[in-house]
Deep mutational scan, measured.
Amino acid sequence: MKATFQVPSITCNHCVDKIEKFVGEIEGVSFIDVSVEKKSVVVEFDAPATQDLIKEALLDAGQEVV
């Protein structure tokens, strides 16, 4: 499964690193693409990962998800 999250609070590479760390810890996540320019995060994943778990990880990383 693939999901795109709009994350307007992404401003720098530190944000990218933190997002990759938090989302990458979720079992089932196979790909993460964070774009500072587009302020988006694209995640490819399989169970047990879910969109809700990914959104929670983004929030835990200090990001706003819309």
Rank of each mutant, 00 (worst) to 15 (best):
V16L: 06
G62V: 10
V36C: 15
A49D: 02
K18A: 09
S35H: 05
K38N: 13
D46S: 14
K18Q: 09
F5E: 04
K21H: 09
E27R: 11
I54S: 01
A61D: 02
V16F: 05
S9R: 04
D17V: 15
D33N: 11
F22L: 10
D60N: 13
E37A: 12
Q63C: 15
H14C: 13
A57N: 02
P8W: 07
I32Y: 02
E56A: 14
E64V: 14
S30E: 07
D52F: 11
I54M: 01
D52Y: 13
E64Y: 13
K39P: 04
A49H: 02
V29C: 03
M1R: 10
A3Q: 06
L58E: 04
I19A: 00
D60T: 10
D33I: 11
A61G: 04
E20W: 12
V66M: 09
N13K: 14
E64F: 13
D60A: 15
F22R: 07
V42R: 08
H14W: 10
H14S: 14
F31R: 13
A61Q: 04
Q63H: 15
V41F: 03
K55E: 10
V41N: 01
A49G: 03
C12F: 07
T11A: 08
S40V: 14
T50Q: 02
F45C: 03
V43A: 02
F22W: 09
A61N: 04
I26S: 00
D52R: 11
G62E: 06
F5T: 03
E25T: 09
V34K: 00
G62M: 14
E20F: 15
F31N: 07
Q6K: 11
N13M: 14
K2N: 07
S9T: 12
Q51M: 15
P8Q: 07
A3K: 06
K38S: 10
Q51P: 12
A57G: 05
E44F: 15
T4G: 04
V41H: 02
E64L: 12
V65C: 15
D52P: 05
K55Q: 09
E20C: 10
D17W: 13
V42S: 09
I26L: 10
G24M: 11
L58H: 01
A57I: 04
V36D: 03
E25I: 11
V34I: 09
V29G: 02
C12A: 11
G24R: 14
I10S: 03
D60F: 13
V65F: 07
P8E: 07
E20Q: 14
M1F: 12
A3S: 08
S9Y: 11
H14A: 15
K21R: 11
K39A: 07
M1S: 12
V16G: 04
F45D: 01
V36H: 04
E25P: 06
F5D: 03
E37P: 10
L58C: 04
T11Y: 15
A49M: 01
A57S: 04
K39S: 07
V34D: 01
V65W: 08
I10K: 00
H14G: 11
N13P: 12
D46W: 12
F31H: 12
E27S: 09
F45S: 01
C15M: 11
E20A: 12
A47S: 07
V7G: 03
V7H: 03
E27A: 12
V43C: 04
E25L: 13
E37V: 08
P8I: 09
G28S: 01
T4I: 12
A57H: 03
A49L: 01
S9N: 09
K21N: 05
T11V: 11
G28R: 00
C12Y: 09
A61R: 00
V41Q: 01
F5I: 04
A3R: 04
K55A: 07
V65D: 05
F5P: 00
A47D: 07
A49N: 02
E20S: 12
V41D: 04
P48G: 02
L59Y: 09
F22Y: 10
F45M: 00
T4A: 06
C12D: 13
V42H: 10
S40F: 12
E64G: 05
V29F: 01
K18P: 03
K18M: 10
V65Q: 05
Q63E: 05
V66I: 11
I10L: 09
Q6N: 11
P8H: 08
P8N: 08
H14F: 12
L58I: 13
L59M: 11
S30Y: 11
I19E: 00
S9C: 10
F31S: 10
T4W: 13
L53D: 06
E25G: 11
I26Q: 02
E44I: 15
V23G: 03
D46K: 14
K38R: 13
G24I: 06
I19M: 03
V34Y: 04
N13H: 13
V66L: 12
S35A: 04
K39W: 06
V66R: 08
V65M: 07
V23Q: 02
V7Y: 04
E64P: 06
C12I: 07
K2P: 03
G24L: 09
F5V: 03
D33L: 13
V23Y: 03
C12R: 07
D60H: 14
D17F: 13
D52W: 13
A3E: 07
F31Y: 13
C15F: 07
P8R: 08
I54N: 02
G62L: 14
S40M: 15
M1K: 10
S35I: 06
A57F: 03
P48S: 01
I26N: 01
V66W: 08
D60K: 15
T50A: 01
S30K: 15
V66D: 07
E44N: 10
G24F: 10
A3Y: 11
V29E: 00
F31G: 07
V43W: 01
V7L: 08
T50R: 04
V65E: 05
K21M: 08
A61E: 02
C15N: 08
S40R: 12
K38H: 14
E44R: 12
D17P: 06
I26R: 01
P48V: 02
M1I: 09
K21W: 08
A57R: 06
A49Q: 02
E27T: 13
I10V: 07
F45P: 01
F45N: 02
K2S: 12
V23C: 03
M1Y: 13
K38L: 12
Q63I: 14
K39G: 09
F22K: 08
A57D: 03
L53G: 06
G62C: 15
A49K: 02
S40E: 13
C12Q: 08
C12W: 09
I54C: 04
T11N: 08
V29H: 03
M1N: 13
A3F: 09
S30I: 12
T11I: 11
L53V: 07
D52K: 13
S30C: 08
P48T: 00
S9F: 13
I10C: 13
S35E: 05
D60C: 11
C12P: 07
L58V: 03
C15S: 11
V16M: 05
S30L: 12
D52E: 13
F31C: 10
K21Y: 10
Q51Y: 15
S40N: 08
V66N: 07
G24N: 08
E44A: 08
V42Y: 15
N13D: 10
D33P: 01
Q63S: 05
I19N: 01
I10D: 03
A49Y: 02
T50E: 02
I54R: 00
V29N: 03
V29K: 00
S30H: 13
E37W: 09
A61V: 05
E37Y: 09
L53Q: 13
Q63N: 05
A47K: 09
V36M: 08
S30A: 10
K2D: 04
A49V: 04
S9V: 04
P48F: 02
G62F: 14
Q51L: 15
S9P: 03
A3M: 09
H14M: 15
E44H: 15
F5R: 00
T11W: 15
K55F: 13
D33C: 15
E20V: 15
T11Q: 09
V65R: 05
L53Y: 05
A47N: 06
I54H: 00
T50N: 06
I10Q: 02
S30P: 01
V34A: 07
E27N: 07
I54V: 04
E44T: 14
T50M: 03
I26K: 01
T11P: 09
I32D: 03
A57Q: 03
K2A: 07
H14D: 15
D60M: 14
I26C: 02
D60Q: 15
S9A: 05
I19H: 02
I10A: 04
V34Q: 01
K18I: 12
E56R: 14
G28N: 02
V42I: 11
H14Q: 15
T4D: 05
S30W: 13
G28H: 01
K38E: 10
P8Y: 08
A3N: 05
V16N: 03
D33Q: 11
Q63F: 15
V23F: 02
V41Y: 02
V29P: 00
T11K: 12
A57T: 04
L58S: 02
D17R: 14
D33Y: 15
Q6D: 11
I19L: 04
K2R: 11
K38Y: 13
V16P: 05
V7P: 00
G62Y: 10
T4V: 14
I26F: 02
L53N: 05
G24T: 06
D33K: 13
H14T: 15
A61M: 07
K38A: 10
V23I: 11
V7K: 00
K18C: 06
V66F: 08
P8T: 09
I54T: 01
F31A: 13
K18E: 09
Q51R: 14
E27C: 06
E25A: 15
